[in-house]
C-alpha cells in the first residue's frame, strides 16, 4: 500500500525532538522516514544503533529520543545484538511466552559500523537468516569521531585521515560495493536509497520488512559538517547524488536487480563535486584526472547496473 504524506504526518514521531544531532543532519530525517513507514504499516518496531553519531545524539543519559524499544551495545555488533533479540522473540513466541505481534527489528548504523568494523557481524546475521532490517546511514566517513575515511568514502574525498597534502590528493581508493557483497552473501533484499526520494525509500522499507529474513538498505546521508556544504542543502545534496549517478537508486530482490528511480537527466559528476568542500581540491587542474576517474567509474557502474537490471 503506498504511503501518503497526508496520512503519516498525523502519526507521532517515534524519534522525539530534543536529540542532539547537528543542524541539517540527514540521519534523523532518514530514521523518521523509516519509522513512519513501519508505523503506517501498523507494525511495532524494536531498534538498535551501533556506536556513532545517531547513537550518541539520541541517548544522552538520562534522556532518550527513542519512543520505540532501543538498544546500543558497541560499535561493531549492533547486528548480532539485535538479531539475538529477534531470536529471543522467536523463541518466546514458539514457547507461547509472548504473543506474535509481527515486531520489526531495525538497525540504524553509520557506514563505519557497517562497511568496516561491523561487516563480519552483519555478514553472519545474513548467513544465519536472522530477521532484521539493517539501514545504513551512509555519510561516507566516520563523522562521529571527526570525519575520518571509511570503506564507504568515495575516491578523491578529503577526510581528516585522507587529507589533501603536497603528495596526496584525498582518498586514493574507490569505495566498497557493499550491496554487491551482501547480494553475493545471499541476502533476500538489499537496496540503495536516498532521503530526498522519500517515496522510493518508504517503498523499499515496506518491502524489506515484509520479506522473510534479513534485509539491507543503504541510504546516502549527506552530512553538511563532514562534506562541507551549507546545512540547508542536505536534501539537495541527496538529489544531486542520485542525479549524477554517484548514488543510483536500485534494489536487489532475491538476486534480481531493479533500478527503482532513474535520474530524469544524468548530470555530470563535476556538479556534485563542485557543491561540496570535501571535493574542492578536485577542481584544480592537477587533480583533474581524479575527477575524470570518478566520472569514469560512475559511468561504468551505471552501465553495469543497467545491464544487471535488464
Amino acid at each position: 500500500m503506498p504511503i501518503k504524506l497526508k496520512e503519516i504526518c498525523n502519526q507521532e514521531d517515534k524519534i522525539a525532538s530534543g536529540h542532539r544531532a547537528c543542524h541539517g543532519c540527514p540521519e534523523t530525517i532518514i530514521v523518521r522516514q523509516v519509522l513512519h513507514t513501519i508505523t503506517a504499516m501498523g507494525k511495532p518496531v524494536i531498534a538498535a544503533c551501533p556506536t556513532g553519531c545517531l547513537e550518541v545524539c539520541t541517548s544522552p543519559y538520562p534522556q532518550t529520543a527513542w519512543r520505540v524499544p532501543w538498544i546500543h551495545n558497541a560499535f561493531e555488533n549492533a547486528s548480532s545484538t539485535l538479531a539475538a533479540a529477534w531470536s529471543t522473540y522467536k523463541h518466546f513466541v514458539k514457547l507461547g511466552k509472548m504473543e506474535d505481534r509481527d515486531i520489526k527489528f531495525v538497525i540504524f548504523g553509520g557506514d563505519g559500523a557497517t562497511y568496516d568494523i561491523g561487516l563480519q557481524f552483519i555478514s553472519g546475521v545474513i548467513e544465519r537468516g536472522q530477521h532484521i532490517l539493517y539501514v545504513c546511514l551512509n555519510n561516507e566517513a566516520y563523522m562521529n569521531t571527526g570525519i575520518q575515511r571509511s570503506g564507504a568514502t568515495p575516491l578523491g574525498a578529503w577526510t581528516t585521515t585522507t587529507p589533501v597534502g603536497k603528495v596526496l590528493p584525498g582518498k586514493t581508493e574507490h569505495r566498497k560495493d557493499i550491496v554487491g557483497m551482501f547480494v553475493a552473501n545471499g541476502i533476500p533484499y538489499a537496496a540503495q536509497a536516498a532521503p530526498h526520494a522519500w517515496r522510493d525509500l518508504m517503498t523499499k522499507v515496506q518491502k524489506a520488512v515484509s520479506i522473510e529474513g534479513p534485509s539491507y538498505i543503504d541510504v546516502i546521508a549527506p552530512c553538511p559538517r563532514g562534506w562541507r556544504f551549507p546545512m540547508d542543502q542536505t536534501i539537495y545534496m541527496s538529489r544531486l547524488a542520485v542525479d549524477t549517478c554517484m548514488w543510483p537508486l536500485y534494489e536487489v530482490e532475491n538476486g534480481k536487480y531493479r533500478i527503482t528511480t532513474r535520474p530524469l537527466e544524468k548530470k555530470p559528476v563535476i556538479e556534485y563535486l563542485k557543491a561540496q568542500g570535501r571535493f574542492g581540491h578536485l577542481l584544480l587542474p592537477e587533480n583533474k584526472h581524479i575527477a575524470d576517474e570518478l566520472q569514469r567509474k560512475v559511468d561504468q557502474d551505471w552501465e553495469e547496473l543497467q545491464r544487471r537490471a535488464k
Binding site: H23, I29, R32
Partner: peptide, 8 residues
Amino acid sequence: WLYCPDGS
C-alpha cells in the same frame, strides 16, 4: 515536515 531533521 518530511525533511525536518528535528520533527519540528
